[in-house]
Simulated assay, not measured.
Amino acid sequence: MTTTSTRLCRYTVDAYADVVGGPGPTTPTGRARPLPAELATLSQAEAYAIRRECVTELCTTRGARPRGYKISVTGKADQERIGATEPTFGRLTDRHLLPTGAEIRLDLANQPPLEPELVLRTSADLGPEASPDEIHEAVEIAAALEIPVCRFADWWPEGQLSRLTLTGLIADTSVAGFVVVGTQWSRLTRERVRQVTAAVDTPAGKVVHGHPSAELGDPLATLAWLVGALARTGETLPAGSVVSSGALAAPTRAVPGTYRARFDQGLGEVAVTFGEGVGSSWISS
Rank of each mutant, 00 (worst) to 15 (best):
T122A: 10
E134Y: 09
T2C: 15
A84E: 13
L120P: 02
S284T: 15
Q79V: 10
E235V: 13
E115Q: 13
C9E: 05
T273D: 02
W155M: 08
L120A: 12
T56N: 11
A261T: 04
P112F: 04
L42K: 13
L106V: 01
R253G: 06
E46I: 10
R187Q: 14
R62N: 15
T189I: 12
V179R: 04
L97T: 02
C54G: 13
L267Q: 07
P219Y: 03
A32Y: 02
R51Y: 05
G30R: 08
H211G: 13
P66K: 14
A138D: 03
P66E: 05
T189H: 13
E191H: 01
G90F: 09
C150N: 04
T258H: 03
G205Y: 06
L114N: 07
Q44D: 15
A47C: 14
S186R: 08
V55H: 08
A247M: 00
R7T: 15
S281I: 14
L164N: 11
D18K: 03
P36D: 01
E129Y: 06
S284F: 04
D172Q: 12
R262L: 00
L58F: 11
G266M: 05
E137Y: 10
P112Q: 09
V272Q: 00
G277H: 13
L188P: 05
G30F: 04
V180Y: 03
G24K: 08
R151I: 04
A142K: 02
V139F: 03
A84I: 11
E276S: 13
D154I: 13
R67H: 10
A250I: 04
E235S: 15
P112H: 04
E146C: 07
T258K: 07
A109Y: 04
K70V: 00
D107K: 00
T167L: 06
S174I: 05
A250F: 06
S123H: 10
D201R: 10
T6Q: 15
L35S: 00
Y16V: 00
T167Y: 03
A176T: 02
A102I: 06
E53W: 08
A17H: 13
R51C: 05
D264N: 14
A204Y: 05
V243F: 05
N110H: 10
L169M: 12
T2P: 14
E115L: 01
E86R: 03
G266L: 03
A144V: 07
L161D: 15
Y11S: 07
